[in-house]
Amino acid sequence: MGISIWQLLIILAIVLVLFGAKRLRNVGSDLGGAIKGFKNAVKEEEAKEDEKAASEQKLEQKDGENVFDVKAEEKKEKPDA
């Protein structure tokens, strides 16, 4: 029901004839570079998230330092005389 090895070899041969080995090599190296760049971007994003979580945790540890409780009240206008 699936694709056999012979069918894959025939498809590969047709692709080689149409595009040539050099062009396929370039496509492969470009694809590899794109995947590598994507992995690096994911690692950088994870590092930023870890750094943000660490800084938030550090702020939570300072619980009670420099905390002000302020009650906001509406200023009432004086009646004009």
Rank of each mutant, 00 (worst) to 15 (best):
M1G: 14
M1S: 13
G2L: 10
I3H: 02
I3E: 03
I3C: 05
I3F: 03
S4D: 11
S4I: 10
S4V: 10
S4Y: 05
I5Q: 05
I5D: 05
W6A: 15
Q7V: 08
Q7R: 04
L8I: 14
L8V: 13
L9S: 07
L9K: 09
I10R: 00
L12H: 03
A13Q: 06
A13K: 01
L16I: 08
V17H: 03
L18Y: 02
L18D: 15
G20V: 03
A21E: 15
A21I: 15
R23G: 01
R25F: 06
N26G: 10
N26R: 05
G28S: 15
G28Y: 13
G28H: 09
S29D: 10
S29M: 11
D30K: 04
D30H: 07
G33Y: 02
G33H: 02
A34I: 07
A34L: 08
I35H: 01
I35F: 04
K36Q: 12
G37H: 05
G37F: 04
F38Q: 11
K39H: 07
N40W: 06
A41L: 07
A41D: 12
V42I: 11
K43N: 08
K43T: 09
K43Y: 15
K43A: 14
E44P: 00
E45H: 13
E45P: 00
E46V: 04
E46A: 12
A47L: 10
K48S: 04
E49R: 02
D50W: 01
E51S: 14
A53P: 00
A53V: 09
S55H: 05
E56L: 10
E56C: 06
E56K: 05
E56I: 11
Q57G: 13
E60D: 14
E60V: 15
E60K: 15
E60Q: 15
Q61N: 12
D63W: 04
G64Y: 03
G64I: 07
G64W: 02
E65C: 04
E65I: 11
V67C: 00
V67G: 00
F68S: 13
F68C: 08
F68L: 14
D69A: 14
V70H: 07
V70F: 11
A72E: 11
E73K: 05
E73L: 05
K75P: 00
K75V: 09
K76V: 08
E77T: 07
K78F: 03
D80F: 01
D80R: 09
